[in-house]
Design a protein around this nucleic acid. Structure first.
Length: 830
RNA sequence: GGGCGAUUAGCUCAGCUGGCUAGAGCAUCUCGUUUACACCGAGAGGGUCGUAGGUUCAAAUCCUACAUCGCCCACCA
């Protein structure tokens, strides 16, 4: 009768939906999510606490729900956290949320647009406030989802990347880098997204194949006498026309009127400042140094020689537009060419282009020019042409290369140090292949543009005396003059002369010196200004920082930065676990900024989990509608089932299609664990609990003392009693080894295999047979049961980091029976 | 153009530093209601480990080339 009662008390199936929330509450209440809490518990169990185990968790973007990639990361982070916590290390998993500047701004703008609200009408201040509230709300949602996967993070330390506490650290880095000359303001060719209306770092762009045109245009010689040279040299060197396979099928002789160039973007001719040819090209050799006239614009430009020009491509002569092509910008620098910018921030043609074209967008202008050139008989050819274009990563708008003043970080010296760390093993990337990729990235790194013309993000802590326009104007003048000094180093005379020139050119009165103040708060005075404080204008930098500038400091900013309490205890951190696709964006920056700011690499290991694909093997995306919400999976199969799938299937370096049937299989495994213990609990009589407890303790003591295996001399009975425990112990050691080597798939497989097919299929069946005829209270029965329960309980501990909910749920049942004590989450074994 | 990776059972994938008849989950087939679990158990079928060479006593595992596929980076007009 009693047996029946007990069985009916425990449901046949583990109901993850109701149980998980209850279990999570137990953990939160236990206080062990904080390193202080876990340390106290470790000490309480009489164990000397080990070195803290610390992970700063990748902050998800606070603009949407968690996706399967986020919960994948959390599963690995949590497994490591729980594992080391249960191995006596005070553990800190530090959570947060990322403001994700450009991405969130794009998301929020769309959100506003749906409500018919325009960003520009709203105004900066209001937009910021509303976006902030939006993020905080989303962050709350995200947090509750993080709890659902079982994340044992220290919520009291959670931070948002725009938190004031972080700003302080981040600005300190900015100031230090500025002082070290690593941050500078400069006029360079940048990627401009006309839709987002901001500059973008190279890494924030994507390259896509696109259909376009290739137009051949004649730039007539200024000196008609040059046609004679052309007549001789062009005829002697006809252009080969090739088919798709590179076979020469025809030849043609170039127009003698001038130089024929091929371009995919005719509109940029408005900003051309040279024609470049290869120095050894026999066609053009004798024309180097001569001049041609840009059609329509009527500007004379020189023919220059540059090694970059490919003699085999097109007409082997290129137009050079330093303002609108990165390659041309470099050529321009080498030959000291003027930079004429004819495209504005919105992607429209602007002065000094001819009036007719001003205001057109680039495609419109290109069409108009082609037509006009044709009328002038200067268009030789136009055909469809497939080529790669650069797009904004966020909105897919083709980016415009334009020249403008931006803030840059000279990352090269930082990359060198990071490279050294990678090469000497200070930080190891898993998988290996990605380590090579990162090395390659560091070896080829370019200056990082960190200013964005956006509203959502961190202010750049800079003030301009007399206004930004004046400063940038002075910068340009100083550079042109070749004085070789900065704006701040101008003599009084030089400065007043230049300012007078500026006032004259711009037709406005200057109230400031053009100096720059790198600080957070508005400066009170400018020592070089003598016009009286009331008239002094300080303009705040309106640009904001690239989001990766702050998230790149995450491992130490969250710990309070150098000098902070947490920093001294918990930095450098141990492992950084994240997705492979932000290796260059985030991991690279954390290494560079971390080493720069602290002198230490921020983590010894970077574990990159695989990318999760939809069941159809493609990337999950909203447009395809093949996305799967992790919350839905958790609701259906439970968090443990999903976690276990991650461990066994999302290997580093792999792309893993989500397999529902496997998750279902894992759910079955979770249920199997539940029922295995259900069997045990059902069999044990209340009257036997006392004896059983004693026996279990006895085995525990024996097992702790035992190191290399069972002592055969102790007899057969003894062996029987400890056999299961011994085998289990060995198996657990194997699993520990896997975890410490980050081979989670092997650990997960082993756990499944061992518990299901050894403990359940073999041992439980054996025990069933052994106790079949024994009466409750029989000492053999107690011994047999204990010999099974002991290893099963040990195995619960080993399984806990992977599948925390079911193991804790079972453990709590054992606590009820007095067979276990405390919470499984902090059962420390050393 | 450069970098990284993949190719193993019907499907999705394991297989670390080379070594017992190559594994798992799911799927398929046969049998089984034995008081933990049918979200179960017992068992079965199924692979010349992309191709061609090479190193070795021994290769899915190391090397070379090729083929196919994928991802990332990139300034060819």
């Amino acid at each position: 009768m009693e047996e029946e009662t007990k069985t009916s008390q425990i449901p046949k199936n583990f109901d993850s939906q109701t149980q998980e929330a209850r279990i999570y509450k137990i953990w939160e209440d236990s206080g062990v999510f904080s390193p202080e809490g876990s340390e106290a518990e470790i000490i309480k169990q009489g164990i000397e606490p080990g070195k803290p185990f610390v992970m700063t968790l990748p902050p998800p973007n606070a603009n949407g729900d968690l996706h399967v990639g986020h919960t994948c990361g959390y599963s690995f982070q949590d497994a490591m956290g729980r594992y080391y916590r249960m191995h006596g290390r005070p553990t800190l998993l530090l959570p947060g949320k990322d403001h994700a500047s450009i991405q969130t701004e794009a998301v929020y703008i769309r959100h506003l647009e749906e409500k018919g609200i325009d960003k520009w009408e709203l105004g900066r201040e209001k937009f910021y406030k509303m976006c902030y509230d939006f993020c905080i709300e989303r962050a709350n949602d995200a947090r509750s989802q993080e709890k659902k996967i079982g994340l044992s993070a220290d919520w009291n330390r959670e931070l948002f990347t725009l938190d004031e506490r972080l700003n302080t650290v981040i600005y300190d880095t900015f100031f230090k880098m500025y002082d070290d000359g690593l941050i500078y303001r400069g006029k360079y060719i940048i990627n401009q997204c006309p839709h987002c209306r901001t500059a973008l770092a190279d890494i924030d762009t994507v390259h896509e194949k696109s259909r376009g045109i290739l137009a051949e245009i004649i730039y007539p010689f200024v000196d008609e006498a040059d046609q004679k040279v052309a007549e001789r040299d062009f005829a002697a060197n006809p252009i080969n026309i090739k088919d798709d396979h590179g076979k020469v099928i025809d030849t043609k002789i170039l127009s003698l009127k001038g130089i024929t160039v091929a371009t995919t973007r005719p509109e940029t001719m408005l900003g051309d400042t040279a024609i470049a040819v290869h120095p050894d090209d026999p066609k053009y050799k004798n024309l180097i140094g001569k001049k041609v006239r840009i059609p329509i614009v009527d500007r004379e430009i020189p023919i220059i020689a540059d090694q970059e020009v490919d003699m085999q491509f097109g007409t082997a002569a290129v137009k050079v537009t330093p303002a609108h092509s990165p390659v041309d910008f470099e050529i321009g620098k080498r030959h000291d060419l003027p930079v004429i910018n004819v495209i504005d921030e919105l992607g429209r043609i602007t002065a000094p282009a001819p009036d007719k074209y001003i205001g057109m967008d680039t495609v419109e202008c290109s069409k108009a020019l082609v037509k006009d050139l044709e009328e002038l008989s200067l268009l030789v050819d136009i055909k469809n042409y497939k080529h790669e274009i650069v797009q904004c990563e966020r909105c897919d708008t083709p980016i415009q290369h334009i020249v403008s003043y931006q803030w840059f970080v000279d990352v090269e010296p930082l990359a060198k140090k990071a490279l050294a760390v990678l090469k000497n093993g200070g930080t190891k990337i898993i998988p290996d292949g990605q380590q090579s990729a990162l090395i390659h990235f560091f070896e080829n790194i370019e200056p990082w543009c960190i200013s964005r013309q956006l509203w959502w993000g961190q202010d750049i802590p800079v003030w301009y005396s007399g206004g930004k326009e004046l400063h940038d104007w002075l910068l340009e003048e100083v550079e042109k003059s070749g004085l070789g000094k900065g704006v701040s180093e101008l003599s009084e005379k030089e400065r007043s002369d230049l300012i007078a020139k500026f006032e004259d050119e711009m037709g406005k009165k200057v109230t400031g010196t053009g100096n720059i103040f790198v600080q957070k708060d508005k400066p009170e005075n400018d020592p070089d200004w003598d016009g009286g404080p009331s008239e002094l204008l300080f303009e705040k930098e309106s640009d904001i920082l690239d989001t990766w500038f702050s998230s790149g400091q995450w491992p130490f900013s969250t710990l309070g930065g150098p000098g902070g309490d947490d920093y001294s205890k918990y930095y450098p951190t141990d492992v950084l676990e994240t997705a492979r696709d932000i290796l260059f964006w985030w991991v690279a920056r954390m290494m560079m900024l971390g080493i720069y700011r602290t002198g230490k690499t921020p983590f010894h290991t970077v574990y990159l989990h695989g990318m999760i694909l939809a069941e159809d093997g493609k990337k999950m995306s909203k447009s395809r509608g093949n996305g799967v919400s992790p919350m839905e999976v958790i609701r259906t199969y439970g968090a443990d089932a999903l976690r276990l799938w991650y461990y066994s299937d999302t290997l580093p370096g792999a792309n893993s299609p989500l397999r529902t049937e496997k998750i279902k299989g894992n759910r079955n495994f979770v249920n199997k664990i539940w029922n295995a213990f259900r069997f045990v609990i059902m069999n044990v009589q209340d009257s036997e609990l006392e004896q059983l407890r004693e026996k279990l303790e006895e085995i525990s003591t024996e097992m702790n003392a035992m190191s290399d295996g069972i002592d055969a001399e102790k007899g057969e009975e003894y062996q029987k009693e400890h056999m299961y425990s011994m085998i289990t112990k060995t198996n657990i050691q194997q699993i520990d080894g896997y975890v410490e080597e980050y081979r989670f798939n092997l650990a997960a497989e082993e756990i499944r295999e061992f518990f299901w097919h050894t403990i359940c299929d073999k041992w439980i069946e054996e025990v069933k047979n052994k106790i079949q005829d024994l009466k409750p209270g029989d000492s053999t029965r107690i011994r047999v049961l204990a010999s099974l329960i002991h290893p099963m309980m040990q195995y619960l501990k080993a399984m806990h980091p992977f599948i925390p909910f079911i193991t804790e749920a079972v453990w709590q049942e054992l606590v009820k029976l007095g067979l276990a004590d405390g919470d499984l989450i902090i059962q420390v074994s050393n």
